[in-house]
C-alpha cells in the first residue's frame, strides 16, 4: 500500500500545474524515500525531474516500490475540485489499478474522494550527469515569468547572457527586438526579491522561449528560480518545492545551423 498525506494539498496541485503543460502523462516512482518523476516532452528537447521527499509529507507510507502511470491532465482536473486549504491524501491500495485522491476541508466538515485509473506507460530513467555549471542565476520567479512572457512577444528564441554584474535576456523577431537587463542586487530587504549571480565564466545561450514559458507554470511553487548554465550544455531551471524537494527542468540550447 502507498499512502501520503499533505496538510497543504495546494502544494501538490501546484506541482501538477507546473508539469502538465510539458508532459501530459508520466510515471511516478514511489519508494520509501519519497516520490520522483522524470519525463521528457514529446519532442525530446526538454526534461522535467521532480523530487518530493517522504519527510515533507505529514504522513507517508510506502510498503513496496511502485511505478504509477498517471495522466497529469486528468489529475489536474481532479485537483481543481480541491479547496485551497484542503488536506490531500494520495493512496494506492495493493492490487489496485487506481490512485485515490482524498480531500478534507480544514474544518473537517467536508470530505471528497476521487479515483483515477492508472495507466500502463513506457518509462525509462535517463541519467543526467552531474554538471559543474559556469553560472547560476538566482532571481525572483515572478520576474522570470514576466520576462519570458514579454520575450515571447518579440520572437521564438531568447538569448540569456550572464556576466558577473548582471544577466541580460534578449529576443528578436519579425516585429523587432528587445532586451531586459537585471543587475545583481546589492542591497535588498527581502532575500526573495534578490537577483544573485554565481559565476565562474560568462555564458551566452539561446533557448526556445516557448519551453521557458512552460517551465514558468511551476513558478507559483517558489519565490525564487535558479537558472544554471554552461556553454553547450542544457539549461537547468529549478524551482524548490518548499523544504520537501524540487522541480528541475532541463532544456537543450538552440544552436546556429
Amino acid at each position: 500500500m502507498f499512502e501520503a498525506r499533505l496538510a497543504q494539498g495546494s502544494i501538490f496541485a501546484k506541482v501538477i500545474e507546473g508539469l502538465r503543460e510539458l508532459v501530459t502523462e508520466a510515471t511516478w516512482e514511489c519508494s520509501g524515500n519519497g516520490i520522483t518523476l522524470q519525463a521528457m516532452d514529446s519532442s525530446h528537447v526538454a526534461l522535467v525531474s521532480l523530487v518530493l521527499r517522504s519527510d515533507g509529507f505529514e504522513t507517508y507510507r510506502c510498503d513496496r516500490n511502485m511505478s504509477l502511470g498517471i495522466s497529469l491532465t486528468s489529475m489536474s482536473k481532479v485537483l481543481k475540485m480541491m479547496g485551497k486549504d484542503d488536506t490531500l491524501t494520495i493512496r494506492v491500495n495493493d492490487d489496485s489499478d487506481a490512485i485515490v485522491l482524498s480531500m478534507e476541508s480544514q474544518n473537517q466538515e467536508e470530505f471528497a474522494e476521487y479515483e483515477l485509473r492508472l495507466m500502463d506507460l513506457d518509462s525509462e530513467h535517463l541519467g543526467i550527469p552531474d554538471t559543474d555549471y559556469s553560472c547560476v542565476v538566482k532571481m525572483p520567479s515572478t520576474k522570470f515569468s514576466r520576462i519570458c512572457r514579454d520575450m515571447a512577444i518579440l520572437g521564438d528564441s531568447v538569448t540569456i547572457c550572464s556576466t558577473k554584474d548582471g544577466v541580460k535576456f534578449g529576443a528578436k523577431g519579425d516585429v523587432g527586438q528587445g532586451s531586459i537587463r537585471l543587475n545583481q542586487s546589492t542591497n535588498v530587504d527581502k532575500e526573495e526579491d534578490a537577483v544573485s549571480i554565481e559565476l565562474r565564466e560568462a555564458v551566452a545561450l539561446t533557448f526556445a522561449v516557448r519551453y521557458l514559458n512552460m517551465f514558468c507554470k511551476a513558478a507559483p511553487l517558489s519565490n525564487q528560480v535558479n537558472l544554471s548554465m554552461s556553454e553547450d550544455t542544457p539549461l537547468m531551471c529549478e524551482f524548490k518545492v518548499g523544504d520537501m524537494g524540487h522541480i528541475r527542468f532541463y532544456l537543450a540550447p538552440k544552436i546556429e545551423d
Binding site: 519532442s43 528537447v45 535517463l126 542544457p234 537543450a252 538552440k254 546556429e256
Partner: peptide, 14 residues
C-alpha cells in the same frame, strides 16, 4: 538560422 537540438545529444543517451 537557429536549430533546436534534442537533449540526448548533450547527455550521451544515443
Amino acid at each position: 538560422q537557429l536549430i533546436q537540438c534534442k537533449l540526448a545529444i548533450y547527455y550521451d543517451w544515443l
